[in-house]
Each structure stands twice: as structure tokens, then as C-alpha cells.
Nucleic acid binder design. Structure first.
Lengths: 133, 133
DNA sequence: CTCCGGTTTGACAATCGTTCTCAACTGATC
DNA sequence: GATCAGTTGAGAACGATTGTCAAACCGGAG
């Protein structure tokens, strides 16, 4: 913890590039397995373990968002860098990134009111999108 | 789907009572396995599968809240009946139920703005409680 | 009280998403 | 082209959760 690199150099391998690229090919949340399958169909053979590893890295780096389905499965989606939330269609998965000072302020004040520090929060909105209505 | 009971009668067995009672003995979120263990320590021997089943029933009935840990594990906690959210201590798990019209209004308006209907949402706030600070 | 049919239980197997292992491989560097 | 840390992938291992199914249980009818 004194002088070692916290993040060792990342090599831009064929597999990593393939995963990153695949992430740009859809706009909703997909599971690691889905993405693995998608890669296969495209002809980019990538091991399942590698897909998991890569998604993890991307998530840590804040380049993809991770959500949990009701069943506890992790699902991923590329995302913008700033803090935001999602409005997700329950039926087709169509996702809109949303943000706004209102919630941020509200959560902060609620936390402060109870003396909680280092506040973070998760918020997802679900609904039926216009196309699926 | 025509005349069958959607919810067959629930029998108040020893096991079910034990689980319900155990749920009142702590205020933070616990995993099914934790609760199973807790029951064992108390002397209330209940099968793990039964604990899972019972917690599921309770959750469906809205008598307990279910959350997912970062790792995807389901954790449970008894809760009040009305819609609310949680302010959870990252370090000790101490939980406060919070609510307020602000977020409810905000999510509704955001959803409306994008034409999403039948809106619901999940929101959890994490922080360090005063005792752990 | 006893019998009966549906409910519940629990030990154990089976799923399934995810992570681990480890030998083979790759790419940047000298 | 030799070197070496970072990577990969096949398959085993894991851990939470759910399914299976025979035995135990319960409450009402007789």
C-alpha cells in the first residue's frame, strides 16, 4: 500500500476489445452469459471466465453500470461517466439514464438528519415504456 | 385461474412461528442462512429449505423487506407496511426506514417525462452511522 | 377419538451464476 | 528471439437458492 501500483497495467487484448465493443452494440442491460453468447454469435470467441473478468474490470473502472435482477443475477450496460440513475422498461429493457439534483439533495439531507456519513445511494426506476404500453 | 385460491390457507406451524419471531429479534438485514443459524442457536430447529420458503412467503406478503447485497445474496428484515426506503450503515448494518414525498414525486415526474407508465422504484441509501463513524 | 386429504417439512440432490485453478499463451521490452 | 508479467480458457469448485419426495402433521368430518 506504499508504492505499488493499485492497478497494474491493463493489456488491450483481442478479448478485451471484443467485450468492450460488444457492449456498444446494445442499449439495455444484459447478463454476462448473454454477452458471452453474443460474442460467440459475432464470431469473437471469448471464454466465459474472461467475459466475467472483463466486465468486472469495466465495472470497477466505472465504464459500465451493474444492476441486479430480482433473481440476483448481475446485468451490465455501458454508461456515461457521471453519477446517474436508470429508468428501465420492465417489459423490453429499454433504458434511459436520468439524473437530477433533487434526489441527490434529498438523500444527502436524510442521511445527515440521522447522522450518517459518507453517503452513497442506489436508485432505479422501473416502468413500462411508451413502445410497450 | 378461474376459481382456485390464489393463496392457499397458510398454516401457523411451529417453524413459521419461529421464523417470524426470529425476524423480530434483530433490526438489520440478515441472509436466509444467518437466520437459519440464528434459529438453530435459539434451539428452534428449522430446516434451511423451510427458512427460505417462509422468508419468501413473508416477502410476498410484504411483511419483510428483501435487499440484495453487492454479491447478489438476498437479505431480509421485518418492515412496516407502507412504502419506504432504507438508510443502511455500511459497516454495522444498522438500518433506518425513511420515506418522504420528495423522491416519490421526483421519480413519478421523471418517468412521466419519458412516457413510462406503471412506475415503481427501488432506492437504498448507504452510509456510516454515527456509532461507526 | 379416529380417520382422511391436503399442507408442510426436511434431508438431499440438483441448478445456476460466478469464481477459482493452473498450465499454456501473448505482447511489450530488451 | 529471449524474457517475464499480465492473460486466457477449460473445467473444477463454490455458494446461494430451489426442487424432490416420502414422512410427519393438522384440522375438520364422521
Amino acid at each position: 500500500m506504499t508504492s505499488t501500483d493499485p492497478t497494474p497495467p491493463l493489456r488491450p487484448t483481442r478479448q478485451r476489445r471484443a467485450v468492450v465493443e460488444a457492449m456498444t452494440s446494445f442499449a439495455d442491460f444484459r447478463s454476462a452469459q448473454d454477452i458471452h453468447e453474443l460474442l460467440g454469435e459475432r464470431g469473437d470467441q471469448v471464454g466465459l471466465a474472461t467475459v466475467y473478468r472483463t466486465l468486472q474490470r469495466l465495472a470497477e473502472a466505472g465504464e459500465v453500470d451493474v444492476l441486479r435482477t430480482e433473481e440476483g443475477e448481475a446485468i451490465y450496460r455501458r454508461c456515461s461517466e457521471s453519477h446517474h440513475h436508470h429508468l428501465v422498461c420492465r417489459s423490453c429493457g429499454a433504458t434511459v439514464e436520468v439524473e437530477g439534483p433533487t434526489v441527490e439533495r434529498w438523500t444527502r439531507s436524510i442521511a445527515a438528519e440521522h447522522g450518517y456519513a459518507e453517503v452513497s445511494h442506489t436508485l432505479e426506476i422501473f416502468g413500462t415504456c411508451p413502445a410497450c404500453a
